[in-house]
């Protein structure tokens, strides 16, 4: 069972829900938490552990082998991203523009552009009790988040398999990194806040998961601020509201110092249990 926790808007409580749900479930079963917000990964902060395993994340880019090159110009012609160009007597590759499509490499008649790994980020892993944690982290200055997201997911699924409950802490937004993060999940939880910003961005996120045809539900965080429009929207659209987490300064303070909130506010255990139950029931019963 894979649960992706996502949102259109940033700062609605994705990481809060991911870390608390993972730690809560890990009290009685094995859980894998994968931080896929590779541009700004924050989940590890809540466990205060250093990595027990780490490795470099690479993407594949072409390397020009001058001795084999005849300067025929095919490579720059076939690259739709302008990532490889001919400058006088040399071929120049722009790694940050390269999408690793292999067209230049495989269409080069001389085999002068083998694909080679280029560092783009770092993967870290640790275990605390039943909780296995995996994080992808993009290097500063690298622009493409997708390869780091794909690597963290692949690592987690190869190591732990599909049987273990897996939680994806996804990046904000609705563009390619989000799709990459949520696409193979069994259920998506969209975290929002009951303000016009929250509602607007929730609608975008709903459009995204509906386009992907995935089952999903909504968690309303900071319930009590703003207005009732998010609830009305969910009612009209027949979207299940899995839980409402009340607005409280105490929650904000606990989050600020990197603490898990359900440990200090025991009522939240029931909330987390209900969220988990609904996800499991929806996946088993095939309910949308």
């Amino acid at each position: 069972m894979k649960i992706a926790i996502a949102s259109g808007k940033g700062g609605t409580g994705k990481t809060t829900l991911s870390t608390n749900l993972a730690a809560f479930l890990a009290e009685r079963e094995e859980v894998v938490l994968v931080d896929l917000d590779v541009e700004e990964p924050n989940s590890a902060i809540f466990f205060n552990r250093s990595p027990e395993h780490d490795e470099i994340i690479y993407k594949q880019i072409p390397r020009w082998e001058e001795s084999k090159c005849t300067l025929c110009g095919i490579c720059s012609k076939v690259c739709n991203f302008h990532a490889i160009i001919q400058l006088g007597p040399s071929i120049v590759v722009f790694p940050e523009l390269c999408h690793s499509c292999y067209a230049c490499s495989e269409l080069c008649p001389e085999g002068a552009l083998p694909m080679v790994p280029k560092r783009t980020g770092r993967l870290a892993e640790f275990q605390t009790g039943n909780l296995h944690f995996v994080e992808g982290r993009l290097d500063i200055g690298e622009e493409q988040a997708v390869p780091a997201i794909a690597k963290a997911k692949k690592y987690a699924s190869q190591k732990f398999g599909g049987a273990v409950t897996t939680i994806y802490d996804s990046p904000p937004g609705t563009s390619c990194p989000v799709i990459e993060a949520v696409k193979d999940a069994d259920f998506v939880i969209l975290v929002t806040e009951p303000t016009p910003f929250g509602l607007h961005d929730l609608k975008l996120a709903v459009e995204t998961v509906r386009t992907l045809g995935m089952p999903f539900g909504v968690v309303i965080n900071r319930h009590g601020i703003g207005n009732d429009d998010v609830e009305a929207y969910c009612r009209d659209e027949e979207i299940p509201v899995l839980a409402k987490i009340p607005n409280s300064r105490q929650v904000a303070e606990l989050y600020s110092s990197g603490k898990l909130i359900y440990k200090e506010i025991p009522e939240l255990r029931n909330t987390l249990q209900e969220i988990a139950d609904t996800c499991f029931a929806a996946v088993k019963g095939g309910v949308r």
């Binding site: 700004e40 993009l138 622009e143 988040a145 904000p172």
Partner: peptide, 10 residues
């Protein structure tokens, strides 16, 4: 600006 450190921010 957008959140993050990736392509939209750059």
């Amino acid at each position: 600006g957008p959140p993050g450190v990736g392509c939209p921010v750059v």
